[in-house]
Amino acid sequence: MADLGADATGIVPATRTLPLAGFHGGSAAAVLSAAVPATRLSLRAGPDAVQALSGALGLSLPVQPKTSAFADGRHALWLGPDEWLVIDENEADLMAAVSASGALHSATDISHRNTAILVKGRSAAAAINGGCPQDLSLTAFPVGACSRTVLAKAEIVLLRTAEDAFRVECWRSFAPYVSGLLTEAAEDAGN
């Protein structure tokens, strides 16, 4: 039998395969890369729980549409009046954090459901607008703005991390479609 790297107990350690491992592309004006793994939470809660959850997460959960909060590698994105996407780039245990809040909420770990593509460059907005109908001008979509929206036929969550940089979150099964479409759009957006 071939050596699969089994340890002394005969168990073969599983290796994690990222949906966009090694992906890079785009153009000089809109560079695409796969975001590093992160933990993610789909968080639902009423207005009464916002304060306690904010304390537990170490940031202020945003309550204004299209806004996000950021602290220490952790983002909280307003998706709806009672819904947030929490992303931790340091892969902290978000489920443990919110369950310590003591407030009534619903949380689902979606760390592996989503993956993210980073789009950076002076034509980053143009590349995303290749499939996304939102106004991405800096007045309508400033740094820190976020929104669940569409990229052609896929649902995405968009976060502007800098004037020329976006994080595009999509479900992992849509990653080949979203990355392929962004690649084409980034090339169209120029060099």
């Binding site: 549409p65 299209k66 709806g80 009046p81 109908p133 939102q134 929104s147 929206t149 569409v150």
Partner: peptide, 11 residues
Amino acid sequence: PYCEEERSELE
């Protein structure tokens, strides 16, 4: 009325 802005019909 929840996002408080106009958005594309596609959404």
